[in-house]
Amino acid sequence: MEFFNVDVIRDYGGALLHGLLMTVILTFIVITLSLGLAIPVALCRMSPYRVIRAISSFYVEVIRGTPLLLQLVYIYYVLPSIGLNLSAFFAAILGLTLNYTAYMSEVYRGGILAVPKNQWEAAATIGLSKARTLQRIILPQALRIVTPTLGNYFISLFKDTALASVVTVQELTFTGQIISARSYQYFTIYTVTAILYLSVGYPAALFVRWLEQRTQHGFRSRSV
């Protein structure tokens, strides 16, 4: 019995590449949305208004306290019962974005708090409003602090998109499951699937490491 069946790849290679494409698309849409949305969520968590703080904290804690798998299933299978029908693709986007936004907001919050207090004070003495200070002085420094951590989230999101298969999105893992069940070529299909993940994931990891070094190198030391 041969383990690796080249014919299977010829027959199903296209489908697997299509699955990989879906995985990459999911990753990029979700990372873009989360990177942007997590900033306002982080700011809400630090709001002087208690109600805003409470709502945003509730959201973050619910997300952090339940499995991502359950969140996806809930959005796709439970929300229709209250009249909210989402396609599999949008359900996956929504679930992954809600999840990653919550985690990334905590990263941003940590980054913002890590900027020394004297930066706020110096900005206040030269007439910058709080909002301006945040935009011009605090966030640019916080972003450099959180870049390595966000890079790691990017890598783990790439793999977490596999969970979208539970809501029937035909990304790479789900495609592999379907094809291998049909052809019984588990060894070949899942090996190729793993290689496809690695062929994108490893360069992405290298890119994140490069970004990390670049921001560390370019990080102008705090003026202390």
Binding site: A123, R144, F219
Partner: peptide
């Protein structure tokens, strides 16, 4: 109206 100079400079590093 009041300029302020800090002990630790508090320059904007970026």
């Amino acid at each position: 109206k009041l300029g302020m100079v800090f002990q630790d400079f508090a320059l904007f590093p970026h």
